[in-house]
Nucleic acid binder design. Structure first.
Lengths: 183, 183
DNA sequence: ATCCAATAGTAAGACGTCTGTCAATATATT
DNA sequence: AATATATTGACAGACGTCTTACTATTGGAT
């Protein structure tokens, strides 16, 4: 209840006040070019930007991208257990447990025991969780659009495909693969 | 000195029981399609993969991508202060301070006071830091190559350009822009 | 010389993420 | 049935990341 008056994104107009920085130690932009060229560096930055844009657009709802992902997953597939959520989103078990705990504490989902397998915690959206998902939709969509704003439709499609190619290849080699299990 | 017997990457052969995964029968695969299609989701995954590949290739050196970035930055521009490092890498002041503290604790860099401006902490690589950078080079290069393995040279270039376009546009709008300090 | 705004850095807290380890429970093997 | 193995989830620890608030210091304005 402390976020209501923030219509405009900060826009960060204070960042480069005067290009004429003394830069006593740095005569070089070129020096770090090898670092900036690393795909991993760009992916870190891109992810950082993506989080930032989502956070700005969805600030009023106080949910992160990960929390949003878990809620969406539960809307699409009610009564998944934590492992199912983890595999569906490519998250660690521990990560999932922690974030689910946060969502439960905010009463956005409920964690109950599986009837026959008592190891499992069955997850269900609460009415509040469903309401939040309903309400956050446009903001999430705005975030997606704003992220892709500098790209043409063709470029956005291309970027998506390239990332898909990358991910499909590495998926199985990483410790936390995406399991598009039907369940 | 507890990492020496792990020549081959885990390869995670236990993940998908049947490689010929029929992604068509699953009605629930479709359910999360809207989530999987989000560029933010792909970027999170891609970043995750990137970290994982780097960690595997560079495991023997016990450095993360962020630590590696800071070390490289200091090699290229000795005697930067923490703010300079933060701006060069697009990191938060706090993040930078924390990671620099870790590197200092491992004696990979030295943190001294600026002569005339005593607020600043001037950072310098120690011989150990330089040696580590020297030694890690091939592994970092392997990580880069492995990450891009599924892409053709043309595709990798394209991906890099698309990410550049994305980042250039958002750079100033994000709270932590990249300051290619030179002037 | 004094005061104030800006800057460098730290501290505390929160979340995301992974690694390990451990307990409880389920399942498979004998 | 009894034991061995696998799985779910929790907990602890570590690192990365951002936010907010605070201290110390600098530098400029009066």
């Amino acid at each position: 209840m402390e976020a209501s008056q923030h219509e405009d994104p900060p826009l960060n107009d204070k960042a480069p006040p005067s290009p004429a920085e003394p830069a006593e130690t740095a005569p070089c932009t070129k020096a770090l070019a090898s670092l900036y060229a690393r795909p991993g560096f760009k992916l870190r930055r891109a992810h950082q930007v993506s989080l930032s844009v989502f956070a700005e657009e969805c600030r009023a709802f106080e949910v992160t991208t990960t929390q949003y992902g878990i809620l969406v997953a539960l809307r699409e597939r009610p009564r998944m257990d934590q492992i199912g959520v983890a595999q569906a989103l490519g998250l660690d078990r521990s990560t999932t447990g922690m974030v689910v705990g946060l969502l439960e504490a905010r009463n956005l989902l409920q964690r109950s025991r599986h009837e026959t397998d008592r190891r499992r915690r069955v997850l269900t959206l609460t009415p509040q969780g469903e309401a939040l998902l309903e309400a956050i939709g446009p903001a999430a969509e705005r975030a997606r659009c704003r992220l892709l704003e500098p790209l043409s439709e063709e470029q956005a499609r291309m970027l998506g495909e390239l990332l898909d190619t990358l991910l499909e290849y590495h998926d199985r080699r990483v410790r936390v693969p995406l399991m598009r299990t039907e369940g």
